[in-house]
Structure formats: C-alpha cells, structure tokens
Design a protein around this nucleic acid. Structure first.
Lengths: 205, 205
DNA sequence: AAAGAGTTTGACCAATTGGTCAGGGGAACG
DNA sequence: CGTTCCCCTGACCAATTGGTCAAACTCTTT
C-alpha cells in the first residue's frame, strides 16, 4: 500500500488522517516514544486498519520525514544572487521564521530526529543537505569577499539562522512559559529582533 | 534510597554510574524512548540492582533534571551590571557556548524535555526560570534605555543566545555532518561568529 | 567470627507494544 | 444482482518493558 500515491477517496482521506495524526504524535514523543495505538486513536482508526495503509511504524515515520525534507529546505534554496545580499538573507530569515510559526510540528519532528542522533536521515544530512549548504555558503562568501556584506563565516551564519528561527517552534513551550503571549503575537517581536540582529551583523564595513 | 545523598562508597560509585549512564540514554532517546535495561547495561548493573538505588525510571530522570537545572542557569545568573554591558552579554554568550561544548548531553537532555512539551519541568519554566529571565530582561532593558547598548527586545535577545549556543550541542549531528570538523575545532569559529554577531547587534547608536 | 546491615540477583509478573491473520462488511461495476 | 475488489475488525501473538520479591551474597562492625 501507499507505494504509488493515494487512489480511492477512502485511501486519500485515511492516509491523510494517519499522516496528520502521526505528525502530532511523532513530533511530540519522538520515534521510539510514539505508539501505533496513539496514532491510530488520533487518526480515528483501529490499529489493524492503520497497518492496512502503512506496512509498519517505520513506514509512517519515513513518509513524514521525506515529505518534510522536501519543503524544509525550500527557503534556503530560494537564497539567490538576485537582489541586495542583506535583503536576501533577511528574507530568508523571515521565511524560516514564518515556517516555524506555521509548521511547528514539522520543526519539532525534525528536531526530535536530529537531537536523537538523526538515525533515519543521517545520509541526507551528509549528502544533499551538505551539498546545498556548501553551495549557499560559497554564495555568501562571495558577497563577503566583494565587500557587499560584512566578513562572516557563512556556515555559522546559516546555523545561527536555523537556530534562532526554529527555536520558536522547537522550544515553543519554553518561549510561551516565559512570554505568555496571546496566540502568535510574539512572532512579530521576534521578526523585528531578528531583522535588527542580522541587518546589523551583516552591514558591510 | 538516594534521598539524602550517597553514603557508602558502593552507593556513591553505583549512583554516579547510574546517573552517567542515564544521562547517555535519556539525552539520546528522551524519557519514553529510554529503557531501564539500556541504562542498567550502560551502568554495568542488573536491572533489579538499578531499582535498588532508584525507586523507578521517573526518579532517575527527575534527579538528572534537577541536577541539571541548577547548573544550567548559572551563566545567566552571572549576567550582572558590573562591567561594560556589551562585554557582559558577550561573556554570557561565550559561557553558554562553552557549556554546549563541554556538556552536550545535558543540553540534549534539556532539549528533549522541552521539545516534547516539558512535561516534567513546566512548573520550573513558568516559575523560577521566568522570574530569572524577567530580572535579566529588565537589566538589559535598562542598558538599552540608558543608550549603553542598542535598543533590542531583551527577551528575544536572550532566546537568540540560548538558540545559537545550544544549537551546537543539540544539533551536533547536523553541524558535524555539514562541517566534518576535527573534534571540537569548529567551536572556535562559532565563538568568533557569535562574538561578531552580538557585538554588532548591540553596539549603541 | 557472628551479627547485621547493605548489596545483588534470578525468577517472575502484568501491562504495553508492534505486528499478524482469517474472515466479515461494504462499495463499485458489469 | 451477483461478483470482485477494497476496507475494516476482533482476536490473537511474541517480545519488550517497568517493576517486584524472596533469597542469597558481601561487607563492616562488634
């Protein structure tokens, strides 16, 4: 099942329900901490029925991760040599922050995976992800060499952008415990702060 | 057992072995993902013997977390109004980064706990942690009001420091997958980058 | 060296967990 | 309207897991 995409309406509906439920559960408990019963209950299906659509627990998790990795790196792919370098980078930060706001479960799914040693995606990190980061680091290094931005180590710049933006999704509980915001209101302040942070850090000279 | 600190040598040795093993296992698998068998094996003890020293799985986890929280916030407590504000803050960043380098397991233990919703420490976050952060945020706000640092939102400044420094511990696998560093060599570059980042961002005017 | 505390273990248990399977019900389609 | 897939379930299973317990062993103290 689920090898060539959904076909019938029932399949489409149930697979979507399973993946949504699994995203809830995996992102909140990690792979080992999640149970099929939890996922089945959250999806409104019986466990055997769940296993009718997915071969096993790993298959659900793998499907979620591969779906995620596609969209997760889109903002970085969009970092191009088209406009002003500082605007490009700040735009990237804002896109990343917006993803943290609208897709916190996906961010936490990824965070769980990495914190626990990336057992399922290590090859992707060392392969395609590294290649993409290498490419963008070279672009940033070029901007620095041309004096269009300050001389910063591009890899650590990228790490800091990942860290500061994903923090609002991954450590959401802590952020809310300290700020007690109304809904997502604190994201506006976060955006202002990060905009200031990177504009200042990257201004040439 | 373990209610009033170790007494005999055997207790001291075994409790230390258990906590060290548990830190390995919990930080890598989260609370639910960790098993008593794993911890016992890593500590070189049998499972019943492990449970002779700790009442249950929760007790081990709780002990680790409370030990950790004490030391974890020390760097922030050290943020005082004694020297130059920018040096104070950069020192804090460096102390935090050094903790990420020397205590990555502790950082990941905490990260696992927060990512998974902080079920065991939510009260501490909303209580003592919030109080401490409120206090330091007021200090930073005072510096900004006095024009001694740039006008930044102090809470988000603190979040960004936590995020950027702990990233090197929590996402260690990813960082290493991209940089392939020799040992901890990349921490020097990280320190240089973060120093630049915060000096630029905080410079007044 | 015997008492007595402290330490360790094998055997065991109930609950949970990932997963299977045979068969029953339902929708679609000729 | 009957057949043929597709969908779903209850019952079940083996392995794992957190935890217990009585008995045995070991170390210290008198």
């Amino acid at each position: 099942m689920t090898d060539t995409g959904p076909r019938t309406r029932i399949q489409e509906r149930n697979i979507a329900a399973i993946l949504d439920a699994a995203l809830d559960v995996f992102s909140q408990a990690g792979f080992r901490g999640a149970t099929l019963d939890q996922i089945a209950r959250a999806a409104g299906l019986s466990k055997p029925n769940l296993l009718y659509y997915f071969k096993n627990k790993q298959a659900i998790h793998r499907e979620l991760l591969s779906e995620l990795l596609d969209t997760w790196l889109d903002p970085l792919r969009g970092l191009n040599d088209e406009g002003d370098p500082i605007e490009e980078i700040v735009d990237y930060v804002m896109r990343k922050l917006e993803m943290a706001r609208t897709m916190p479960r996906e961010s936490r799914l990824f965070a769980n995976e990495i914190v626990q040693g990336a057992p399922h995606v290590l090859d992707i990190i060392e392969g395609p992800l590294k290649a993409l980061v290498d490419e963008k680091a070279a672009l940033i290094r070029g901007w620095a060499a041309a004096g269009r931005i300050a001389a910063v180590e591009p890899y650590h710049l990228i790490f800091s952008i990942w860290a500061t933006t994903q923090h609002y999704a991954d450590f959401d509980v802590q952020v809310r415990g300290i700020l007690s915001p109304e809904g997502d209101a604190h994201f506006a302040d976060a955006a202002a702060f990060l905009s200031h942070l990177y504009r200042r850090a990257l201004a040439p000279g």
